[in-house]
């Protein structure tokens, strides 16, 4: 009786969890499914084709949207990592007046609604006469990514005994040398995690981009947003499929790399 009851609860749990995962994956699965459809409408599956993948390559609007998305994401990661890592080390190592205020500033972009950040940047770029385009888009992305980077790197350093830095300097290493050979290797995993976070925030953003993009800097989400109301053609589905597969591959590689690293750490 008790055994039966246990099996039953197990089955119920498994069914519930499976339903949630179906819910989570259904929309993306549909997009991928219809990228192989011969019909131009994403309604009924007429037959299998790869045609949309070559159509996609000739769609200049779509390709430039992809290009813009990549440029913004990569620039965002580079700038955020540079500014954010330095700030994280500096704020961890030194006590200074106004540190609390800097902390509050860092939390503003994390907690305010994205739409408010979007409109405030739109208004601000307008008065400083910076035309909306790829530059404003990169500035906006760094603004919401960099605080996350500081937080991620700082939580990583907090777990480390920084006395090794002093040890290095006592042994005659210069400040720069210590930074490059001791500090950076210690915080590298934190920086990598932060960089991945910044990259994904950039790829996932719709709202802030919507307000800070210009006509020549359309990114993929904005491109789709503009097209969705009058119908999206399947070459967009094909592009999304390529991106989804590429993301999964990158994540998989990074994950194996990470587990390998953490194993080395233990030895």
């Amino acid at each position: 009786m008790s055994g039966q009851k246990k099996t039953l609860t197990y089955l119920l749990k498994a069914a519930f969890v499976t339903l949630i995962y179906i819910f989570l994956y259904l929309p993306i699965t549909m997009i991928i499914f219809f990228s192989f459809n011969t019909s131009k409408l994403n309604i009924v599956f007429k037959g299998f084709t790869f045609r949309w993948y070559s159509v996609m390559l000739q769609n200049t609007g779509l390709m430039s949207a992809l290009w813009n998305t990549v440029i913004v994401a990569v620039s965002n990661v580079v700038i955020s990592v540079f500014i954010g890592t330095l700030a994280a080390i500096g704020m961890f190592r030194y006590e200074f007046k106004g540190k609390n205020i800097v902390d509050s500033f860092l939390y503003i972009p994390i907690v305010i609604p994205e739409i408010v950040m979007g409109i405030s940047l739109l208004a601000f770029f307008h008065i400083i006469k910076l035309n909306p385009g790829i530059i404003t888009l990169i500035i906006a992305h760094v603004t919401f990514s960099m605080p996350f980077l500081v937080v991620t790197v700082r939580s990583r350093i907090a777990g480390y005994d920084m006395a090794v830095e002093e040890a290095a300097m006592d042994l005659g290493a210069t400040r720069l040398h210590t930074l490059l050979r001791v500090t950076l290797p210690i915080i590298a995993p934190g920086v990598l995690a932060g960089a991945m976070l910044a990259f994904s925030l950039s790829l996932d953003d719709v709202i802030v981009s919507y307000f800070t993009t210009g006509p020549d800097s359309t990114t993929l989400p904005i491109y789709i947003y503009n097209k969705v109301k009058c119908g999206v053609s399947p070459d967009v589905n094909a592009m999304i499929t390529v991106i989804v597969i590429a993301t999964m591959l990158i994540l998989f590689v990074l994950r194996t790399f990470e587990t390998k690293n953490s194993k080395n750490d233990q030895i």
Binding site: L24, L26, I28, L203, D204, D205, Y225
Partner: peptide, 15 residues
């Protein structure tokens, strides 16, 4: 799934 843009996933719901 959250590594794919939220607007793209919303488009999936429209389909």
């Amino acid at each position: 799934p959250f590594w794919t843009n939220s607007l793209i996933r919303t488009y999936g719901w429209i389909i």
